[in-house]
Design a protein around this nucleic acid. Sequence first.
RNA 1: GUCCCCAUCGUCUAGUCUGGCCUAGGACAUCAGAUUUUCAUUCUGACGACUGGGGUUCGAAUCCCCAUGGGGACGCCA
Length: 426
Amino acid sequence: MVRVRFAPSPTGYLHIGSARTALFNWVYARRHGGKFLLRIEDTDIARSESRFLDEIMTDLKWLGINWDEEPINQSKRFDVYRAAAENLVKSGKAYREGEAYIFRMPAGRVIEIDDMIHGKVSFNTDDIKDQVMIKSDGSPAYNFCCVVDDAYLKITHIIRGDDHLSNTPKQVLFYEALGLKTPEFGHMPLIMGSDGAKLSKRHGGVSVEEYKAEGYLPAALVNYLLLLGWSPGGDREILGLDEAVKIFDIKNMTGVQAKFDLQKLKWMNGEYLAKEKAENLLPLIKRQMADAAKSANCPDDALLRLIDLYRVRIKTLREFVPATDHFFGDGYSVDEAGVEKHLKPPESKKILLDFADLLDKVDDFSHARLEEACRLMAETKKIKAGRIIHPTRVAISGKTTGAGLFEMMEILGKSKVIERMRRAGA
RNA sequence: GUCCCCAUCGUCUAGUCUGGCCUAGGACAUCAGAUUUUCAUUCUGACGACUGGGGUUCGAAUCCCCAUGGGGACGCCA
């Protein structure tokens, strides 16, 4: 039975690269009907905090990753590691240096691993130094407790980042010395920033929390991450966890480091946003508005209409707030270039005021009726409807882009619309 | 410095294992047109790559070697 694990260290947020590692482990487990376990690597007691662990677990669940069995904490197993190290000292494979336990690296051995992603990779033990197993302070060193625990948890496949590839021969030697069965390894290439450098804040964010706050949908983030280093085959790109579970094959993963492309993530998020039901987006939008200190006392049904109008035009939920600010009071942002182009010309002002006068007589302020009035005026004055539409759009929203003009007018309401038009035309 | 991994459009990738079907396919981005007498959507098209050099072979993006480039690791961090 396949058993894999994700082993976060609760010393910080969940990194987007770690999330991807967790994701592929999870998919691998589900694909093979195995178990996906969580192990908390909190050996650095000073830096580990429970709030980080809470956040990591919350983020994993948010992404749709659940785990089997109760997670274990390494901080509670120090005596297990010490006992294992003690045995190696007794058998002469390790020695002590003060309080520390150190593994003696055998000379001239070639350690070959058959990586699920890279194929055969070999290392010479002459290039590797003796390894600390237990530090002077009594805490275990990473490579050692990792092996002890993976064996304890009966992990069959270790899928992790390429940064661990060079740890692998050391760990293989530990399995061997401890008389344990070595699991299969699969090292996935690391994700880099768009410029090839280590992924950092300036590339758009490194933590899952940042993407959540920015208004990315978990399904979109997961979908994008799935496409980094793996391809579902054919020309398929949009797929969810459930479909990935059906067709995932680790042999199809590439060994090539991928650059994180925020543009494509945005596009993908837009795709998911456009498909999502407005009701599901409602609480998320409310959260965005609260975060932006726009405590709109806007009834849900009105907000739902706005969401329906805008979710196909935004790429992240955060974009909703600035895109719709003109619906919430007069303190909205104004596109100066748009004003220059559509509101400055005297003839535009004239058209705007004429249209406002016309609208004053319209009682049924529905978008269908408004459009009718606009088209009629254009015909009467023998001008293109665009000559009316553009100035009006800028006048009532301050923007050159947005939802359909007549829908915006309907939602804004007669008095607001006319007031803004007359102010802009003055 | 030593060891390890990797190398197809700007980016993610298909194709590489099992050489010929590849005048190298798709997606994002960019640009141009069409549709919508507004915004967005949608549609069409354009741009655009096998890192270089040697081999092997009738034939190489695909196999081998070297170089170059990128990344990772060499912690009593995890």
